[in-house]
Amino acid sequence: MNMNLQLMRLIRRITGNDSEYQTADQSRILPALRLSVAFLAILLCALSQNAIYVIMIIAAELLWLSMKSPIFIRKTLKPVLIAVLFCFVLMLPAVSMGHPRTLLTVSMKVFESVLILSQLENSVSWQNMTDAFRTLHCPQLFVFTLDMTMRFLVILGRYSNSILEAVSLRRVGPDHWKTAGTGGILGTTFLRSQKMSLETSEAMACRCFDGEYRSYRRRRFSRPDALYALLIPLLIALFVYTQQAM
């Protein structure tokens, strides 16, 4: 039953993400622009030689996050805290080697980077993310793989969920099936995925889909987009200023 629940959670997360953002404001900002700003902020954070830039970005991120709903905050912070905790444990030996600041610096950078990505993930749907990657001229293969992965996670997730449900309904006696049956379920799912990939390939050929992703929801560069785009020079200026401050 636990495995069923885990799978259902995963599916809900992906499909929920999509349905939420169909009804939500879908952000007035172009997803490609958001993605660019996020990547730039993370890149500059990684390049930063001092903590000032990182702390400034963290302050801005926290301010933005504090204005969101409690549910959004929880969804956003959960992966961030796990990542920071993991990093903290990994970097703990730095303290015993006499570099406690390194522990703080790396943990802060991880916090900042994962926070940006987590916020992006929670505020841009998967379809828009694919669209954003395409707009940014990411290789077709990359976009195709990402898109297919997301779709098949849901499809195969539902499939294995049905098998698990069937197995648990037919289960009688001691609880040994979990280990004995898992291999079978995984194997069946794998075979199914092979079949489905062939079907997908045929469906692609029938629809004359050559792997080229085109965005059909092009919209004009609006005023909020222009304002948001100002973040790019602002981030670079901030980075240059903070690096000179040392």
């Binding site: 926290l62 301010l63 409690p70």
Partner: peptide
Amino acid sequence: AVIGAAILIIIFKLLSV
């Protein structure tokens, strides 16, 4: 001030859920 105020609001919002 921004960090402190934001963290406090976030903490209590998280407590509410």
